[in-house]
Design a binder for these strands. Structure first.
Lengths: 322, 322
DNA sequence: TGCTGCCCATAACCCCAGCTTATGCCCTCA
DNA sequence: TGAGGGCATAAGCTGGGGTTATGGGCAGCA
């Protein structure tokens, strides 16, 4: 590395003497991270090896691309591309930054696919109904993949609980559904597409995170927990596993609120492993081993009995089987 | 939900009769996805239950927040918050969108943590040297976590291959290193922090993706593959596993380039599972089972023999042991 | 019942980031 | 040696996002 970071190539440094470098300013991410357009531009430069080429691909002019990359470099304080009269290549640091940028762009693509499905309610070629956990954590990725296979298929998404999903399907208002939980609503055929486990989590420092031995079912049932409201898929599985005994410390109506409460140390909680992956890997939450309790559940694709999915629905279904 | 989507409420529609609704316009993500500032604002609204409160937290005025949320709703075509004279709550669709937004913001936080480490080269309290794969895929997450524990510790990052990492550590220019690969450079102590496997991947449709039986080592060695250049950690492991026989179809100098080539169907490749997680789950690449080949490798933290990490280095080390 | 406080919306104005067009220099290659 | 691709700089325009100022609903309380 180090090849270019310091500005050893005196191409253009117009900013001259100003090294005021505001440190430690908590300028709210948006001020420290380039916007999506700039990140897309960077990815295009990486792929095409030229600023002008990237500009053409994005439908802007070459000077616009040039200045935008430059201001991104100023913002980050790192040289990203080596410009030469016959093209531009990423510096080592630039390659790294580009990889990190790609994550943001991919998350944005998932967001876009999801948002688009949420908007196009009727008149879509593929109408999907999904339970919350699946709609939150899995569907956007599937939709991105689906779009790459069927770019012209408009998808609509309705999110609700299992019974709502079943109603839509049976009323002919949805082509394919996804539910989590133990049982399949009557009138529907299903295929298991993935498995999910509920796990017990607590903020770092909680006594349970220091235990040697796993929690027993009885102890879990006896401890007040931060939980989703009754009726949620997560709560149903937990209640079933404990024999209807889960004691709520607080009941909240969204997974997000539950996570926030758990992270802030309000108490232990039980959540889908899909929901807490990020929190676990960054140590904002710690998983507590449990013994003796069946917290696994299947994630299923469902459709009206007899109406085996065809067309785009079939395509989507085939994407979901990892 | 559907309360406002269709534009039935004529609040501000200055564009009047134009329902031209540009469909299918590939307006480059950035035009379809709200910018980071707007997403942060949405998260704040979700957390605080009020537009004004969110505005205060972000250091902007209430009208600014109000208008920004409104324009986000217009952009997405979906009502996100239910405004009432005593606060604002997310709609169902808003809750979903907020969850998707959170992914983007988290990716941005990782980007920011990484970029900041890349910028602060010297004069940092914790100097980390890491091999490319780790710097790309794992370090940013660790840095986010570290920052939540030690907000005032400036971290610097140098990315290079294993020998470069070792040099820095031995020269006293780095406090903690991370390497992938089979052997530990001499003069360094190490601890295994995770495991990684190289996997064989191909674009969907490639003959190998239809096979029933795993690929044999001999077949893998006989087939031209898309590979990183000689000397990269990935290549070393593969060569060792095959007995130095890997045949390159193309040699490329970055993981990203290799992935792009593989996705475009140029041929099969061998890559770290860390690198292709996203591609696998969205089916841009398919994993091909292999028999008979030892493609596992350890990811290790390393430090100069005897100089057991202390202070921030120790803290970071403890974060990395999942 | 009216007062006070919190919440949100609208209006008018301002500023700068990012775009465009126009131009020039550098390098390579036929 | 001229043509063409690639990059940089300069000058001017536009709009999104910010600000201040103001007004209207709904709760709670004297």
């Amino acid at each position: 590395m180090g090849s270019s970071a310091g500005g050893t190539n005196g191409t253009g440094d117009t900013e001259g003497g100003q090294d005021v470098r505001e440190r430690h300013v908590t300028g709210s991410l948006a001020h420290r991270v380039p916007d999506l357009g700039a990140l897309e531009l960077l990815l295009a430069v990486a792929r095409l090896g030229s600023l002008g080429g990237a500009a053409r691909e994005l439908g802007i002019t070459q000077p616009a691309a040039s200045s935008r990359v430059r201001s991104m470099e100023r913002q980050l304080g790192v040289a990203l591309v080596d410009r030469s009269p016959r093209g531009s290549r990423l510096t080592d640091a630039g390659a790294l930054v580009t990889d990190w940028a790609r994550r943001i762009v991919e998350a944005a693509e998932a967001f876009d696919a999801g948002a688009q499905a949420l908007r196009d309610r009727r008149d879509s070629r593929l109408r999907v109904a999904a339970s919350m956990t699946i709609a939150e954590y899995l569907l956007p990725g599937w939709l991105v993949a689906l779009r790459s296979q069927l770019p012209d298929t408009a998808v609509s998404l309705l999110a609700g609980n299992s019974t709502a999903v079943a109603e839509r399907l049976l009323a002919g208002e949805a082509d394919l559904g996804f539910v989590e939980g133990v049982s399949v609503p009557t009138g529907l055929d299903s295929a298991v597409i993935a498995h999910d486990r509920l796990i017990v989590v607590a903020a770092p420092g909680h006594p349970w995170t220091r235990r040697r031995r796993p929690i027993e079912a009885a102890e879990l049932a006896a401890t007040p927990l931060i939980l989703r409201e009754k009726g949620s898929g997560t709560r149903q599985v937990l209640d079933a596993a404990l024999g209807g005994l889960a004691r709520p410390l607080i009941e909240l109506s969204s997974t997000t609120a539950v996570k926030a409460a758990a992270v802030s140390g309000a108490g232990p909680s039980v959540l889908s492993e899909l929901a807490v992956g990020e929190e676990l890997s960054t140590r904002r939450l710690v998983s507590v081993p449990v013994a003796d309790v069946a917290l696994a559940r299947d994630l299923r694709a469902v459709w009206p009995t007899g109406h085996r999915p065809t067309g785009p629905a079939r395509r989507l279904l085939s994407l979901t089987r990892a």
